Computed example of a mutant assay.
Amino acid sequence: MIKDGISRQHFLEKASIKSNGNATLIDYYDDYYLCNITLGTPPQMFSIVPDTGSSNLWVIDANQCVSQACKGQSFVIEYGSEYVEGDLVIDVLGLSSSLTYNTQTFGLATEIADTFGQQPLDVGSYVNTKTVQAISDTGTSWIGAPVRDLNAIVQATNAQYDFFNDLYFVQCDAVGLPDLILTIGSQQYKIPQVEYVIDFELTNGNCALTLFPMEGGGFGPSWILGDTFIRTYCNFYDIGNQQIGFSLAHHSNI
């Protein structure tokens, strides 16, 4: 908006005439949140991950499309250590019966990383007061943290590393684990054990610690606040004022 010289008032005036509607999210083990959309003419149903950390929309190409609309520019997107590539096309996007867009550009993925194929599609006494950048990302299931901070959280929770599944775990019946406390601006945001310890039906009564190490080397944000954070605090995106608001979610676990 800033780059294109669009004022906040102009944006709000245009937004006010757009269609309104609701799209239901699908909760998969509190690890992925999916949304059903339709793409194409005639409409085809797809389950996607609504991802505020990316401006890209892509679905897997099952080699069923033979129309001219499916022939377009190639694309490659890298997500950390993962990737997706294919061809860009334009067709109708539907989020619900009342929310459609006739000329949506999206990717038909012809090759994807293995990870995407597996998808359905008081921090103890440790404190780090260094100011760093973070991104709120609905496309990331867990919280990405700098290695130093993650190691401190692992120590505070007595978590162990699972080499086979490449994650940290604690016993599912563990009690009294400390809250994770993030300070954003001057406000503290507490993430309780029930949100960052998730039962993925691992062996021996183990539950996953839903954090992973960030090794950006100074490039990009130091933290990624994924679904583990967003389950606890609803995110409100105020594009006109270039800000994000957080509000404590209303559900029985917190």
Rank of each mutant, 00 (worst) to 15 (best):
I6M: 09
Y83C: 02
D162P: 01
S7L: 04
N151L: 11
G124W: 13
K14A: 14
P221R: 06
G5H: 01
R231C: 06
H10Q: 14
N241D: 13
P178F: 04
Y161N: 02
Y161W: 01
P221V: 06
F246S: 09
D87Q: 15
L57C: 01
I244H: 03
E215M: 12
G240H: 08
C234L: 15
D238S: 10
V92M: 09
L167D: 10
Q155I: 10
Q44I: 09
A69S: 13
I244K: 09
D87S: 15
G226F: 08
A145V: 11
C65P: 00
I135M: 02
F229I: 09
W223H: 07
V194D: 15
G53Y: 04
S247H: 15
K190H: 13
G245P: 09
S54Q: 08
I90C: 14
T110M: 10
V84S: 06
L248N: 10
P120V: 08
G217E: 00
E215R: 11
T41S: 09
G205Q: 01
N36C: 12
Y196Q: 05
G5K: 05
R8L: 11
L39G: 05
D179F: 04
Q64K: 12
T140F: 00
Y126G: 07
Q73L: 14
A159F: 03
N241C: 12
T100L: 11
F163K: 14
I191M: 02
D122K: 14
G80T: 03
G218R: 03
G226Q: 07
P146W: 00
G216C: 03
N204D: 12
I6N: 05
Y189D: 04
I143V: 06
L88C: 11
Q242G: 13
L99P: 10
T24I: 13
G94R: 08
S81Y: 11
G117A: 07
T41L: 06
L180W: 01
D227K: 10
L108D: 01
M214Q: 11
E85S: 11
S7H: 04
G226P: 02
V59E: 07
G217H: 03
